[in-house]
Amino acid sequence: MSDVTTPTEEWTKPLPTPDDVNRDYWQAGTEGRLLIQACPHCGHRQFYPRALCTSCAGEPEWLECTGRGTVHTFTIVRQMGMRAFRNELPYVVAMIELDEGPLIMGNVTDCDPESVRIGLPVEVHFINAADDVGVPMWRPVPAR
C-alpha cells in the first residue's frame, strides 16, 4: 500500500473514465495499489489495461505491482496552456520503467525537477482525482 492523497481542491486536470476494462485499475489507485495486466496463458505483462493480451490475444488478469521503478526517460515541461498545469510549471513528465517490466507515464513529484535523471529510482504514490479514480504519481525513493 502506498500513500494516497485526497486533494482539498477540486480536480481540474483531465479526468480518466472508468469503464468495464479499467475500473479495477483506477479503483485500486484509490486504495494505494498499482495494477498492471499479466496473461495467464503466455505470461506477457502489459500496460495500459486492455480486454485482450497484446501478445497472444488471451484474457489478461491483474497483477499488483511493488510500486517501484526507474525513470526511463523524461522531460521538464516549461510551457503549457491549460491552467491546471500552468500553475504547476515547471514539472516533470516521465516514462517510468516498472520493476515488473512495462512502461507507464507519470509525474515525478516531491523533488526539484532539475534533479531528475534517467535511471532515478522512484516509488509510486496516488492522488484521488475522483471517488473511483486514484491517479498514480512518482517520487524519488528516499535515500536510506
Binding site: K13, P14, Y48, M80, R83, A84, M105
Partner: peptide
C-alpha cells in the same frame, strides 16, 4: 503546448493514461 482538454473534462480511451500528467 496548449493542452487539448478543458478543465476537469473526462477523457476516455488510451489517452486517459497520459492526460492527467500534462
Amino acid at each position: 503546448t496548449g493542452g487539448f482538454q478543458r478543465p476537469g473534462q473526462r477523457v476516455a480511451g488510451p489517452i486517459q493514461y497520459e492526460a492527467p500528467y500534462g
